[in-house]
């Protein structure tokens, strides 16, 4: 229960930020951190708790982003109605990829490659179809109003905070439920898990559907916040990398890992920008170096290091 209270305290602290900070730059940095933490948690639920490493989480992100944009622009849906639809679609794509992969017991790098391939196929499709705006992408017209889910910085901070809190609660539930025990059992040893009565296929399916929904939620937020989506932003590798980086740097399989990782990466990003300027690709190089270092020397991430010190 203390861990649940921690989520409440965190929500409260962030909720107080706008009262104390009025730098738009800082608010934006916090919003982007919470957003990256949401993507990281969507990755963590499948990769951290389930041991199913995805290289293509962009497929869920892009599905959510495009659903949000297409439903509003082409069909005139209200954003608040489009959001749950976008999440359901993200979950459905998760279910589809899961059914194909898990039916044949794909794991490890095979599963990672399948997710990557799906993201790439979706990118090509988005580039082709007229209703997604093809290569030009889609612009969501600016009509700032809570009714349209379009806010100022403060409003968006509250929006992404509530999305992240929902994701944190899902992670907390996984950590403290039978489903979570089953998911972690499947991650650690599939044979043992099934000998103990765990329906391995079903457990993995549920995990990928939840991951897909949360990642689609991140995509939907992106569209609302930046008003624009194109095939590369939606389904390109950088969103997939952003999601897995936050989880791996922070510590996979832990409730707070993705948030800690997202904050660390945000700081690192500010630092490199200050030291080396905005040279294109510099952040990718830094990401790569950090990832190699983390995987080799801190496989349990920052959170893992902290708990080791505590002992």
């Amino acid at each position: 229960m203390r861990s649940l209270a921690a989520i409440g305290v965190f929500a409260l602290l962030i909720a107080l930020v706008p009262a104390m900070v009025d730098s738009g730059y800082l608010l934006n940095a916090i919003i982007m951190t919470l957003y990256a933490a949401l993507l990281g948690q969507a990755w963590n639920i499948l990769g951290g708790f389930g041991g199913l490493f995805s290289f293509g989480h962009a497929v869920f992100f892009g599905t959510g982003a495009y659903a949000m944009a297409v439903l509003q622009v082409n069909f005139g849906w209200n954003a608040w109605v489009a959001l749950p639809a976008a999440m359901v679609l993200g979950g459905a794509v998760g279910g589809f990829i899961g059914a194909l992969s898990f039916r044949y017991g794909l794991r490890g790098s095979y599963f990672a490659l399948v997710t990557l391939a799906f993201a790439e196929v979706f990118r090509v499709l988005a580039n082709t179809f007229q209703f997604t705006g093809a290569g030009v992408g889609l612009m969501v017209p600016l009509k700032e109003s809570a009714l349209n889910m379009q806010f100022g910085k403060t409003g968006f901070l509250y929006l992404i905070l509530s999305f992240l809190i929902a994701a944190q609660l899902v992670a907390w539930w996984i950590r403290h439920s039978r489903f979570g025990a089953w998911l972690q059992a499947v991650r650690d040893n599939e044979e043992s898990a099934s000998a103990l009565g765990v329906d391995v296929f079903r457990v993995k399916m549920l995990a990928i559907v939840m991951a897909g929904m949360l990642m689609a939620c991140g995509g939907a937020f992106y569209v609302q916040y930046l008003h624009y989506i194109d095939p590369h932003l939606a389904f390109g590798a950088s969103v997939s990398v952003q999601a897995l980086m936050a989880a791996i740097v922070g510590g996979i399989g832990s409730v707070w890992g993705p948030l800690v990782g997202a904050a660390a990466l945000q700081l690192l990003g500010e630092l490199t920008r200050n030291l080396m300027g905005d040279a294109p690709g510099i952040n990718l190089i830094v990401y790569g170096v950090v990832l190699v270092l983390m995987v080799n020397f801190m496989p349990r991430g920052i959170v893992g290091l902290a708990t080791r010190w505590k002992r």
Partner: peptide, 11 residues
């Protein structure tokens, strides 16, 4: 249910 000759804990 069964146990495994080569033990398979959730390490």
């Amino acid at each position: 249910t069964r146990t495994f000759q080569l033990v398979q804990p959730f390490a």
